[in-house]
Write a protein that binds this DNA or RNA. Structure first.
Length: 197
DNA sequence: TGGCAGATTTTA
DNA sequence: AAAATCTGCCAA
């Protein structure tokens, strides 16, 4: 069916540096099948979190029960609960033993808009998936998705050939340390990013 | 546009 | 105990 068009990203996709992968993820489709519904969106905003020189990274102070997935193999989900209300979805990168990941901050809705609107309690397309907590609510991503292999199963990353050029690199959102590193990426002018500043 | 409450987990 | 990779609502 058209909404599932595209090939799942394989291990080889995760070979480069984490910032490079964060850029390469722009345009890919994140898809979640829940209760037979296909919920998906195109990735339009990412942030890289690094193991070296990046105190804002959850893994900066070594492995803990929460950040353990970051130290696992690449291409898996790292989902955590934050601020008492929200989930954040990350994609693990770097070889096993190295704690790095890419936070997905915004999607452009692709399929399952009606179901996503119901989950988000809004029909405003811009408010559906523009923000790390919002996209998790829209796609039904929660703790049960943690560590999922994103190349197979009900939570998938797909390549349908979409390429963005003119990618912007700017400082990340909501962090207090390493706040100057330009590790946040999005296509210039994209209307679905969480903030345009 | 800006400030703040909300509500829970994790870590120090 | 304090901070946390946030969001929605409300007042100006």
């Amino acid at each position: 069916m058209a909404s599932m068009k595209g090939k799942p990203l394989q291990m080889g996709f995760y070979n480069g540096s984490t910032p490079d992968i964060a850029v390469s993820l722009l345009g890919k489709v994140l898809l979640h099948i829940v209760d037979g519904n296909i919920l998906s969106g195109r990735i339009v905003e990412t942030e890289a979190y690094l193991s070296q020189g990046d105190p804002a990274c959850h893994a900066a102070r070594g492995m803990t029960p929460r950040n353990r997935p970051m130290f696992g193999p690449p291409g898996r989900a790292y989902v955590y609960f934050i601020y008492g209300n929200h989930f954040c979805f990350n994609i693990t990168t770097a070889p096993e033993g190295v704690g790095e990941a890419v936070l997905i901050r915004a999607l452009e809705p692709v399929s399952g808009r009606e179901e996503m609107s119901a989950r988000r309690n809004t029909s405003d397309g811009r408010l559906l998936c523009s923000g790390p907590g919002r996209l998790c609510q829209a796609l039904g991503i929660d703790r049960s998705c943690n560590q999922a292999d994103l190349s197979s199963g009900s939570l998938l990353l797909l390549d349908d050939g979409c390429i963005y050029d003119d990618i912007v690199a700017v400082p990340r959102i909501g962090i207090k340390t390493a706040a100057d590193l330009p590790l946040r990426f999005y296509p210039a002018g994209n209307q679905f990013v969480s903030r345009r500043t």
